[in-house]
Amino acid sequence: MKRALFLVALAACGGEAADRSTAAVAAADASYPAVREYDRGHFRIGATPTKAQLVAWNTDIGPEGAELPEGRGSAREGAQVFAQQCAACHGAEGQGLEPLYPLLISRDPRGEGFDFASDPKIPRSIGNYWPHATTLYDYIRRAMPLYTPGSLSADETYAVVAYLLAANKVIPDTATLDATALRAVQMPARDKFVPDDRSPTRP
C-alpha cells in the first residue's frame, strides 16, 4: 500500500521527486488529512529582513570558518581571559566540575585512540572529541560565559579559543589565532565521525 502511494507520488511530482515524494507519502498517511500544497509566494505574508537585522542575527560560523570575524588573540592572552571569566566554573586547569560544569581541557591517554565506546569515564574534551575548531568559536560566542553570553570581544574570543586549543595540545602555546589561522587548525578528532548506520539489527 505504502509503496504504491510512493510510486504515484513519484510519478506526479516529476522534477522535484526526491523532495516531494516524501511529503506525499506523509500526506497519504491515513492518520491525518493531507497537507495542502500552495505555490511559492502564494500568501505574501511577512516582511523582508533589513540588512541590519540579517547582520545582527546571522552570526553562525560553519565548519569552514568562512564567516569568522576580524580580530586576533594569542593563547597567552587567552590564559588570562580564561582565568578571569571561565575558570570559576570550568576549573583553573579546565578540569571542569562534572556533571555541572564540563571539562574543557584533557588529553587523557585513554581518549587518544578515540575509544570512548569502551568506558563512559574517558573524558571527552575539545582536544580529543571536537571535530572542528571553528565550532569552539561559534559556541563560545553564542553561549559563554554562561551568565554573560556575548560579552567577549572578537579578540578575547580568539584568545580564549587559542588558549583552549593550546592547553588541549592542538596548537602550540605560542600560537596566535585570527580567522585565517583558526580555519587552518586541524582537530585530532576531525575524521572520527560517521553517518548514522542503525538498522533493525544494529541498534
Binding site: 553562525d60 560560523i61 560553519g62 565548519p63 571527552r124 575539545i126 572529541y129 571536537w130 571535530p131 572542528h132 571553528t134 565550532t135 561559534d138 559556541y139 553561549a143 565521525f193
Partner: peptide, 9 residues
C-alpha cells in the same frame, strides 16, 4: 550541516 556544539561535542 553547521556542526554546532550540540551535534558534535
Amino acid at each position: 550541516p553547521w556542526r554546532t556544539r550540540w551535534e558534535t561535542s
